[in-house]
């Protein structure tokens, strides 16, 4: 299988603290890869290493099947990026910012207008960027990352500071890119809800370690169903079940049972009824992706 990005044992330390710990990341062509993790998990540090901005302490990065260490320039010609807060030259206008980069990237001047149009900044193209709002700067950052029509787009929290309509706009834009331009996209976020509608694959990082990496469907399957029982005397029911070695948890006048087979559920119900308890409801609850994500990162911590 050919990967657009493939890292092996990627590690970065800051002093004693290990910010990225033996990370193996695999991204296939055409994927929208959601890179998830709480604050300080090591997302930005990983992305910096993917771009060669920081040198890893150990491990390897391959992009387009080429060694980043050896063919950095070659790789970067095909990569667009936005790392953490958007970068810009405050004394230049939006147009001039793009022009300064265009001189190095050697794309046509028309492309500047195109990307400004895409992020809807055409109206303020000739305004100095130091006068931009946070969201406008973010859009400019996205415009910059797409200037040279990259095959791989690396976006570190690109919706930071955008208003709801801006978030939807950018989300729609990102969703279109793989189909229309054959791009592959790596997008980081600390909110699963932000990307669960567009990501095809997710990687979850916590404390520098990759704790989950698979398709978004697999992540959904990972979700644990919970059986909820509502009975007249929860305390007693809990006691009875625990006596039989079944772990139950009584809270908020509900009895929570982790995922069980249908037969087992039937058995439990029978047992409770035989003990003279009244059962009002038996429900199954699917935990949301956000719950799973929180669960995963909490378990790790």
């Amino acid at each position: 299988m050919e990967y657009v990005i493939k890292t092996e044992g990627l590690t970065k330390k800051f002093g004693k603290e290990t910010a990225v710990d033996r990370l193996d990341m695999k991204i296939r062509k055409g994927e929208i890869y959601g890179f998830l993790g709480p604050n300080g998990a090591g997302k930005s540090t990983t992305i910096r290493m993917l771009l060669g901005l920081m040198k890893p302490d150990s491990g390897m990065v391959r992009v387009f099947n080429k060694d980043l260490k050896k063919e950095r320039i070659h790789i970067l010609k095909r990569v667009g990026s936005l790392v953490e807060n958007p970068s810009y030259y405050p004394h230049l206008t939006a147009y001039e910012n793009l022009e300064a980069l265009r001189k190095i990237l050697r794309v046509s001047e028309a492309r500047i207008h195109e990307v400004l149009e895409i992020v809807r900044l055409s109206d303020v193209a000739h305004k100095k960027v130091k006068g931009f709002s946070l969201g406008m700067k973010q859009r400019l950052g996205i415009a910059v990352s797409m200037l040279h029509q990259p095959e791989l787009l690396i976006l570190d929290e690109p919706t930071n500071g955008l208003d709801p309509s801006g978030i939807i706009e950018i989300r729609n834009l990102i969703q279109r890119l793989p189909e229309e331009y054959g791009m592959t996209i790596l997008i980081s976020s600390h909110l699963l809800s932000e990307i669960d509608q567009i990501a095809t694959t997710v990687g979850v990082i916590s404390k520098g370690k990759m704790i989950f990496q698979d398709s978004i469907h697999a992540m959904r399957k990972h979700s644990r169903q919970t059986i909820i029982l509502k009975v007249n005397d929860g305390k007693r029911a809990e006691h009875i079940l625990q006596g039989k070695g079944i772990y139950a948890n009584y809270q908020d006048s509900m009895l929570l049972l982790s995922k069980l087979s249908d037969q087992k559920v039937a058995e439990i119900v029978r047992m409770l009824v035989q003990n003279g308890l009244a059962i009002y409801r038996v429900e199954e609850k699917q935990s949301s992706l956000e719950d799973i994500f929180l669960q995963m990162t909490r378990e790790e911590a």
Binding site: L51, G52, L53, L76, V79, S81, V83, E84, N85, P86, S87, Y88, Y89, P90, L101, I104, L105, V144
Partner: peptide, 10 residues
């Protein structure tokens, strides 16, 4: 405003 970061990712 992160100019190095942008420049060196080119």
């Amino acid at each position: 405003e992160g100019g190095w970061k942008q420049l060196l990712a080119l």
